[in-house]
Design a protein around this nucleic acid. Structure first.
Length: 492
RNA sequence: GCCCCCAUAGUCUAGCGGCCUAGGACGUCACCCUUUCAAGGUGAAGAUCGCGGGUUCGAAUCCCGCUGGGGGUACCA
């Protein structure tokens, strides 16, 4: 079994695209087939420099590799359509279709096409739809030859039957047939004036030549599938199995995910600190499921369990909360040392750690990581959560410092008492600090929450922070005492 | 407009004729744990299985219609 993912290098790869690539990849890996990456750069106008590399990087990041592709070659190289066009591959089949009468040369210019469309729409005939049929369909060979001799540019169009219907079955829909009336179709352009094939001709020729057995693609291709069926038949080729997977809809359900309107670039998630394993797991679940309970699965487990038959036909909605939750689960499942390594780039970027980091930066971050490890949902949250370890607290909020049922005076006294106690602590470590401060709270006759709360704000500048005694231990005696003193002074 | 696809809680889903008084997860809320926040634990609210007809002894599951949503309607993919 051979499948492919064939992106168009017109921009970055968004998660919907990755999901389609993933389903293809899972299919290939599950059945021990091959997964091909092919670049469909037949759109000369929308081509974006660097997009191809970006797309490949996004795929590699989530853990999708390919057996044949532009960068690694393969038995059917090249894997870039613009290069294949130079080899005359598409022209050859266009000529074959011309010879067999399945296609014809059309001299209608885009402008004329537009005018015809407008005229059609203006006619009282109330057309349901503008269905282009070139006048050249009925031309004699002599007429065509004459037009061509005059040097007029032309496209090669598929001669679509005026009546009848075209059906094909779809694996995602349980093998049910989808039928479309030929009368709703039009004479599709196969080869553009420039000599570049359209997607329709190019992908099909390549799929056949590359031995693709299963076409797994987004459902936006369903309406054009009949053209593809006609083309396979016209060329005398065996049909592949079709599986049109549902799109991922925008969060509000209004339309499919779009690069322009949604912040869904795969790279963005990479930047924000999503683990590729989490993204892989989440995306696999967008339209596919294993059973009624299992959600967290390793790559291997998903590969083992994935089948197209279990892919849903209805579209899923983009749910960042769910992804975030899953990312937290994956982060927590990692050893703290690994998390520390993953966090370092974020600390550097936030300017909290020297670039490049010094040995002591590594050891300090390793020391701090356990304090935030299980609180992280995105790695990028770490610098903010740990910022007070790297910069002093400025401007204490009396409101935060003064706990429930306390006032400024009592808080000052309490902080000074804490300062005195901590000043004499022999062993500056978590357990000892906790023991001493608990005893202090008792002797002061305040609730531990009141004491700890004030100290937390004094030391971190905020009411929500990592566990207090771990924080004090990691912050060190000197800085801890200085901040407590500063907080008390701020309340004067 | 026309064509195609889809339809279980706010969201992702399990279900493929009786096991469903519809299961799991995210989100929401409550409680427990607890120095805050998380994590973890327990529990709750939330779906007349979009609506209406059939078929059947029996339907979330099959059929039809309607409605709603999505996709397509390019010399873009």
């Amino acid at each position: 079994m051979r499948v492919r993912f064939a992106p168009s290098p017109t921009g970055y790869l968004h998660i919907g695209g990755v999901r389609t690539a993933l389903f293809n990849w899972l299919f290939a890996r599950h059945y021990g087939g091959q997964f091909i990456l092919r670049l469909e750069d037949t759109d000369e106008k929308r081509f974006v420099q660097g997009a191809a590399d970006d797309i490949a990087a996004s795929m590699r990041w989530v853990g999708i590799d390919w057996d044949e592709g532009p960068d690694i070659g393969g038995p059917h190289a090249p894997y870039v359509q613009s290069e294949r066009k130079e080899l005359g591959i598409y022209q050859r089949y266009a000529d074959q279709l011309l010879a067999s009468g399945h296609a014809y040369k059309c001299f209608v210019t885009p402008e004329q096409d537009e005018a015809m469309r407008a005229a059609w729409a203006a006619s009282g005939a109330r057309p349901e739809r503008y269905r282009f049929r070139g006048p050249e369909r009925d031309w004699t060979p002599a007429q065509t030859a004459e037009a061509e001799a005059s040097g007029q540019p032309f496209t090669i169009r598929l001669r679509v039957p005026m009546d009848g219907a075209t059906s094909f079955s779809d694996l995602v829909r349980g093998g049910d047939q989808i039928t479309i009336n030929n009368g709703d179709l039009y004479d599709l352009v196969l080869l553009k004036t420039s000599g570049m094939p359209t997607y329709h001709l190019a992908h099909l020729v390549d799929d056949h030549l590359m031995g693709v057995t299963h076409v797994i693609r987004g459902e936006e291709w369903v309406p054009s599938a009949p053209y593809h069926i006609m083309l396979y038949n016209a060329l005398g080729w065996e049909l592949p199995v079709f599986a049109h997977v549902p799109n991922i809809l925008r969060q509000d359900g209004k339309g499919k995910l779009s690069k322009r309107k949604d912040d869904v670039s795969t790279n963005r998630f990479w930047e924000r600190g999503y683990l590729p394993e989490a993204m892989f797991n989440y995306l696999a679940l967008q339209g596919w499921s294993f059973d009624d309970k299992t959600e967290i699965m390793s790559r291997d487990e998903i590969v083992e369990r994935f089948t197209i038959e279990r892919v849903q036909a209805s579209p899923a909605r983009w749910n960042p909360d769910k992804l975030k939750d899953m990312n937290g689960i994956y982060i927590r499942s990692l050893p703290a040392a690994d998390v520390a390594d993953l966090l370092m780039p974020y600390m550097m970027k936030a300017g909290m750690v020297a670039d490049p980091p010094r040995p002591e930066d590594y050891s300090y971050l390793t020391r701090l990581t356990p304090l935030v490890h299980e609180r992280l949902e995105e790695l990028q949250q770490a610098p903010e959560m740990l910022s007070f370890f790297f910069q002093d607290v400025e401007g204490y909020e009396p409101k935060l410092l003064i706990q429930k049922q306390m006032d400024a005076g009592r808080t000052i006294d309490m902080l000074r008492a804490a300062h005195a106690t901590l000043n004499t602590v022999q062993v500056w470590e978590t357990g000892e600090l906790e023991g001493q401060l608990r005893a202090l709270a008792e002797s002061l006759g305040v609730k531990v929450g009141q004491l700890f709360g004030s100290i937390r704000v004094a030391v971190t500048g905020r009411s929500v922070a990592p566990p207090l005694f771990d924080t004090l231990a990691a912050l060190g005696r000197e800085r801890s005492l200085a901040r407590i003193a500063a907080a008390a002074a701020a309340l004067e």
